[in-house]
Amino acid sequence: MKEKKVHDWFDHPQNIRKLRIGFYIVLLLLVLPDFFLHKHTYFSAVEGWPGFFALFGFISCVVIIIVSKLLGYLLKRKEDYYD
């Protein structure tokens, strides 16, 4: 019987660390051009501020997660609730 190949790259903490550092570098590189770029805006000049969409995405998600968490207390039930 052929041995199944098992990847375990993500099991090693040093790999996760590399990944995290790479992720932060990408985030930085994404915001950096904003300081030199003139952006086209739709509704208000605020959209053109450097890092606006980064902040927008981050805050949106934090709010969504917190709201979900709070609603979770109200809506979550045990799996056999309907049985």
Binding site: K76, K78, E79
Partner: peptide, 24 residues
């Protein structure tokens, strides 16, 4: 930017997203 910083929020708030054996 929007997407990658959403990802950042996900990983920073991961403890709040822990799966539970529930239905909604």
């Amino acid at each position: 930017q929007l997407l990658m910083f959403s990802a950042l929020a996900f990983f920073l708030l991961l403890p709040m997203l822990k799966r539970t054996q529930t239905i909604s």
